[in-house]
Design a protein around this nucleic acid. Structure first.
Lengths: 124, 124
DNA sequence: AGCTTGATTTAGACATTGTCTACTCTAGGG
DNA sequence: CCCTAGAGTAGACAATGTCTAAATCAAGCT
């Protein structure tokens, strides 16, 4: 555990939002000016492998990193401004996929993304 | 409807798979060598606006284009090789999101992505 | 303390994907 | 035949992510 990794972890802990790698980097630089982009990417990659952080691929260009990896949840995305909220739907989508629709895959995860318009964008 | 647009439409129709923009471009070039990348992107964008084609954001870097836009469906992705299959789960995930979890959003769509290992990768 | 070894970090080049701009081409109206 | 508007083109540019070579650091050994 080096200073750089601690800073990346702190950035993600402090804000429990959904940051892009670049945003993580900017905030890390505020705390440790000499940290490099490559290190941020490396560290994020390690955190993902360790299961501490989730990669979220909404349809935006950049992946986002979600530190709330231990509590399973899904996402609600504003189609206009890209705002993301964590949501906890009822039901178990894994159970909704019959064997006949699995094509021999060993299915291990489901990711559900709801899309819509957030109150802010609806008002504007 | 120009020659270029017809070619893009043909590429997507012929293969009802999930191509990246670059793959669409390569195949379009086979049929019409002078077609440019920009035109492919423009045409794909128009098809998406028209609702003829869906953009699919699995976690891979590139967006994929799914011509099967009229029959609602979701996707099953191999975490190793990236293979994609269309699937039709039972149940309605929209109904599984209670009002208390909508944060004032007007929710209009759900996208469900199952992840796992395909038979090919499991064998290897 | 000084050395060695290996992992970590860095800077920057590179790759991929997508967007934008300025120019060219073509078809149709006058 | 010329003009115009839209479509297409080439290539520059931008954003995101990956890789490499060199510098740095930490830890153990003598």
């Amino acid at each position: 555990m080096t200073a750089q990794r601690r800073v990346v972890a702190e950035v993600l802990d402090g804000e429990h939002v959904h940051l892009t790698a670049d945003e993580v980097h900017s905030r890390a630089v505020d705390k440790l000016p000499e940290i490099s982009r490559a290190t941020v990417y490396n560290t994020l990659g390690e955190l993902v492998s360790l299961g501490e952080v989730l990669e979220v691929a909404t349809d935006k260009r950049a992946k986002r990193y979600d530190p709330n990896a231990h509590r399973p949840h899904h996402h609600l995305v504003c189609a206009q401004c890209g705002a993301i909220r964590d949501v906890h739907p009822t039901g178990n989508p894994l159970a909704d996929l019959p064997d006949s629709e699995r094509f021999g895959f060993a299915v291990s995860e489901v990711e559900v993304t709801y899309r819509g318009t957030c109150p802010n964008c609806a008002a504007a």
